[in-house]
């Protein structure tokens, strides 16, 4: 009889601990999700900013200016463009 009571008390205690543990895990996971979401948003913003900078750097006007001034390049003259056929 005494052993049966002990078993019930142990089970209830274990269930209580399990419940508390699960609740704590939920809160902890929620914190993690929150932190990662912030990190993701921040990285995404950084990615967008970099993407803007890449697109600004690839602007045809800028590239043409660089090609002309830095590398002394110009548009090809007739006959200078040779297109190779794919085989």
């Amino acid at each position: 009889m005494r052993g049966k009571h002990f078993a019930i008390i142990a089970l209830v205690t274990a269930m209580t601990f399990a419940f508390v543990w699960v609740r704590l895990r939920i809160v902890s996971t929620s914190y993690d999700i929150n932190t990662l979401s912030k990190q993701e948003r921040s990285l995404r913003e950084e990615c967008n900013t970099l993407s803007l900078k890449i697109n600004e750097a690839k602007s045809p006007r800028r590239l043409e200016q660089l090609a002309a001034t830095k590398f002394k390049m110009g548009p090809p003259r007739p006959g200078q463009v040779v297109l190779l056929e794919e085989k």
């Binding site: 090809p76 003259r77 007739p78 200078q80």
Partner: peptide, 23 residues
């Protein structure tokens, strides 16, 4: 001309020869 070069359209005219020579 810029468009055809950009689209990689191969030259199709015999005039190319003259121009190649001209260069």
């Amino acid at each position: 001309r810029a468009g055809l070069l950009r689209e990689r359209v191969p030259p199709t005219d015999s005039k190319v020869r003259l121009l190649q020579l001209a260069n």
